[in-house]
Nucleic acid binder design. Structure first.
Length: 129
RNA sequence: AAUGCAAGCUGGCUUAUCGCCCCGAGUUGUCGGGGAGGAAAGUCCGGGCAACAUAGAGCAUCGUACUUCCUAACAGGAAGGUACCCUGACUUGUUGGGGUAACAGAAAGUGCCACAGAAAAUAAACUACCUCAGCCCGACUUGUCGCGCAGAGGGAAAGGUGAAAAGGCGGGGUAAGAGCCCACCGCUCUGAUGGUGACAUUGGAGGCACGGAAAACCUUACGAGUUGAAAGGCCAAAUAGGUCACGUUCAUGAAAGUGAUUAGCGGCUCGCUAAUAGUUUUUAACUGGCGUGAUUGGGUAGGCUGCUCGAUCCUUUGGGUGACUGAAGGACUAGAUAAAUGAUAAGCACUCUGACGGUUCCGUCAGAGAACAGAACCCGGCUUAUAGGCUUGCAUUUAAU
RNA sequence: UGCCCGAUGGUGUAACUGGCAACACGCUUGAUUUUGAUUCAAGAAAGUCCAGGUUCGAGCCCUGGUCGGGCAA
């Protein structure tokens, strides 16, 4: 039933929301990622929206950047069920901070930890409200 | 056969599972088709396309520079010329092969050429050389020779330098010399022949005047309007603006307010907001404010378009030495936009290493490797980066005949 | 996507029109001082981002590349 899809509505593409995310969102670091997030249940989006970024300062060649982004995207696609259950919404940006190209298995494991942390944060914020 | 150099071509394939982007069916289960490169890169040139500007001419600025051709155009390419370099052959100065060239003008003008050197660009001064007559000294053959000094003249041959030294080399000539004269080479001017042309071959004359550097300024000839898809076009929330329509009432009170009514909004037995000021012709009209609704131009967020059928590609064939081009037939071949074209697993093929069998080249097993690199409006080039493989040419080495 | 600058000792800057790469701070050594600072004297440290070319000769001129910075939404 499309469990592993990664369509356009799950990506962050609006310039305004990205600006808002980086201006007002909070963040944590978990090697090799820096995650910027913002939980806003009033948004019109029906699913969590995600942005993946690799700095051209660390990887000057476009081929390397594309490879890393594809691996992260694939890892997120396979594991996004962790934060998808229920009707949670939010904007997340995964910034790749490592300076070496990690293999797919390692990225997958690290992203599993990251998503677990996001899930906890999610619950905490709802409890506080 | 190996190695090296140059040129050209190629730049892994298959299956399974889970996905991404576009198109077409279908209908909301899906199904079918397509999905990176030779450089997509650097952004170095040239065009298309688009908007704006624009009488014509000149100047300035920038670029190009042997010739002819190709082309939409070019700083690109093809063919050729000239100069230089490498290499082979022999007839030893000719020829075969390959390579390089920002290859117009230094006799239009201005400026530069450090150090060294006599002198660095109108060729003049200096040293040295030669002749003449004079003085001093020395020798002897006693009027000659040699050295030195100053004078008059000849002349530009010699002068350790330097990147570069004022036509080269040989002969004649002379007191000594000098294109002073001669032959050859080179240079300048001029004619003939061949070639579309660069230029080549050759005849005559001149008699050295003309160093390098234009990648110093510059001159000549030719060319160039500016800005780039974030161009340009279309649609268009929200907010503020313009125009029009409707509403803006009543009671009480000194006032704040309270109540009713009307209009609008919301979470709709209720709550919130508004019901105002001025002028006059004063039971009404006009102007402004406020509220609501309609409409309107520009246009923000955002979206659509531009966007992929084009100087296109493939095959056959005609023309041309070639770059290229004519004709016929066929094909549709990525269009993303915080930016798709992927991830994982297995196998095959390729290369290397190790082991074993066999034996000089194969087989099996294990491990490792597989380049440079990612479209962003589209083309033609150039430049730069490229593991491995293939083809052709040249050179060298080894082996066999 | 388009455009424009720059690169020189450890650091910050010079080098005119092509002719021995200079200055300051810093560093090292010595002297002065009881010791340190100051001061004085001496010294080391680049061959000019890389590769070609023009030229007798290149930091400078030309071509290609690498890296860094900036501008336009």
């Amino acid at each position: 039933m499309g469990r592993f899809t990664f369509k356009k509505e799950e990506r962050l593409s609006k310039e305004k929301t990205i600006q808002e995310l980086f201006n007002r969102g909070s963040y944590f670091c978990l090697y090799p990622f820096k995650v910027v997030y913002m939980i806003n249940p009033d948004q019109s989006a029906t699913k969590p929206q995600v942005l993946i970024s690799v700095s051209s300062r660390n990887f000057p060649r476009a081929v390397d950047r594309n490879l890393i982004k594809r691996r992260i995207r694939e890892a997120y696609r396979l594991q996004k069920e962790i934060i998808h259950h229920g009707s949670k919404r939010g904007a997340f940006a995964f910034l790749y901070t490592s300076k070496t190209i990690l293999p797919f298995a390692e990225i997958k494991n690290k992203l599993f930890l990251v998503l677990g942390k996001i899930e906890k944060l999610d619950l905490d914020s709802e409890v506080k409200k």
